[in-house]
Design a binder for these strands. Structure first.
Lengths: 338, 338
DNA sequence: TTGTAAGCGTTATCAA
DNA sequence: TTGATAACGCTTACAA
């Protein structure tokens, strides 16, 4: 013990009368160890309260015990949900969570990511949308030997490197629900260009309309940016139409709520005059009045599984599920049209 | 260069024809170095693209280049704002941000925190409320030699270790604004017990009433828990009173919005029938209808300053401001009583 | 199955 | 102002 400080592997080795390498084997659960030796060393470890030094291990292994969530400013609730999911997966382990935002529009974007990976050497990274569809990032991970898992709306990688939800199918069901309620003029508020998720959500929406024999009218498709304000704008345009829709599907909750508020500011009652459906199931959606019918996106679960794929043995990564279902949550904002 | 991989301090030393310690001095900006040597070494460093290995430094320095935000589940927006503030401070530096939740009600709470600090050895930690008022945590930081800064609503530490807002004063002003608008029966929805922030906010509220000669009526004080649901409950009780208030101050926005929705569900118009004021200025508050008059809490700025105190030289920590003002934001949810 | 020696890439000590 | 040498605490060869 050298008197002071925390015990090191050397102290344990001396006390257990074995070499430090043997202690190292015990720490790393090496299979080639006699049961007797293992037990003896483990007893000493417990007794001395030995905890391996992560910095030393990181230096020797060239890998830190860190899971990094890499993002480009998704909304707050999404980010926090991801953090919660990752924490659930790594709780009780030696891993810790690092959160790192990047500006994908910056000229130094890739250099920034590379610098981060080379500096911090995280054990693995979770790529959040929309960064998860950036193939350059994935190439960067491969190049630096960093394990990665993408969180995405489509299966754009093999099972070991992706966690995805079935947004397309879920939105199709949500739209079918609107149609079954009697709506035939349904407006869509799209998500930002260049994102994968709105493509899928819009796709599901269109599939449902087509299947029901409802024409896809350009006037009912409005651009959006996943922001409250863009929902406001899109809704303003939709209700100003000569023949306005009786229902609106917004590609996320924030826009849906922007749309709801805009409708009400303009004297429309929800859902009596117009129905609204969102996507995400943020806490917000049950905190508005009337509460919002929406699609629940299993972010926490997706993040948890992503982290599990990263911290487990590489060959086991593909064994975790890669698809986690999004599901329709029926609340108050939908009713048959008048 | 040994052919492969990234250049190390040895490669630089060899190329510059100096000892590795001299290179180390250059990296660490040691003052005792001849200008000539410094320039020579810096040129070589640039040329070779040398980047010091953080893991090796961490091992030698017994400190990681990590700023950790330690929290116990504050709301999502708060947490994300803190992350943004810290990132602003450490952008371009070697530091990275780690986020670590703890359950302060767990029996192993202190052991968990200790294990985290001893394992990851962060350079410094930002303690978020309500954990920031836990003296045991601070003792733990001192014991493990971890620098810390508390984010708090009161000045419960010296200037080097705290960043605080003047919630009491800001709420006093907000309440004075209600009183100036003509309100004399004002309900208060409190924050959770054991938190410092609601004490301050309630304190400011009471000060304003007392200064205006308005009696403090127990029936107008309702418990809350900083959650939407608790705002709903409290508002339900308040408007059910024989002589209901004409205005409500809620200790945070989430409860204020819960209160707004409850009032409207019960046929009250906002602000014509009842005014509402919140605290936080979350994005939410401008996304409801009518938009919420509230107190802006400078979380991003507080977190940024907290991180600056941590990453700068210890003796400079006290020189950064410790007080960042909260300010009243007037929107649509307040009007004179009928 | 276990041990020895040589790293991993820095910083600290102390002498020059 | 600089440098040689020993930490820092662990892992990976390679032997035994």
């Amino acid at each position: 013990m050298k008197g002071e400080g925390k015990p090191t592997i050397n102290d344990v080795a001396a006390a257990a009368k074995v070499s430090k390498k043997t202690v190292s084997r015990v720490i790393n659960k090496s299979p080639l160890l006699s049961e007797k030796t293992r037990e003896k060393v483990e007893a000493v470890i417990r007794e001395m309260g030995f905890v391996p030094n992560l910095q030393a291990r990181a230096l020797a292994l060239r890998r830190n015990f860190i899971i990094a969530a890499i993002h480009d400013n998704p909304n707050a609730q999404f980010l926090v949900n991801v953090q919660q999911g990752v924490m659930e997966a790594i709780a009780g382990s030696e891993f810790a969570l690092m959160v790192q935002p990047f500006d994908r529009n910056s000229a130094s974007f890739e250099d920034d990511v590379r610098a981060f990976l080379e500096r911090q050497r995280p054990h693995g990274v979770v790529l959040l949308p929309p960064l998860s569809s950036d193939e350059n990032l994935v190439a960067l991970c491969r190049e630096t030997g960093t394990r990665y898992v993408r969180m995405s709306s489509i299966k754009n990688d093999d099972a070991a490197h992706i966690v995805s939800s079935n947004d397309r199918e879920a939105v199709r069901q949500a739209t079918e629900y609107l149609i079954a309620s009697g709506h035939r003029r349904i407006g869509l508020i799209d998500g930002p260009v260049g994102f994968t998720s709105p493509q899928e959500r819009r796709g599901g929406f269109e599939e449902a309309l087509v299947a029901a024999g409802i024409p896809l009218l350009p006037e009912l498709f409005r651009p959006g940016a996943y922001t409250f304000e863009s929902g406001v704008e899109a809704a303003r345009d939709l209700i100003a139409l000569a023949d306005p829709p009786t229902a609106i599907f917004a590609c996320n909750d924030e826009m849906a709520i922007g749309a709801m508020i805009t409708c009400r500011r303009n004297g429309l009652r929800i859902p009596q005059d117009i129905s609204v459906v969102g996507f995400d199931d943020t806490p917000l959606s049950s905190h508005v009045w009337p509460s919002l019918t929406t699609v629940r996106w299993p972010i926490v679960e997706m993040a948890r599984v992503a982290a599990l794929k990263l911290i487990g043995p590489p060959e086991a990564a593909a064994e975790h599920p890669w698809l986690l279902p999004s599901t329709l949550v029926k609340r108050e904002s939908v009713t048959p049209p008048a």
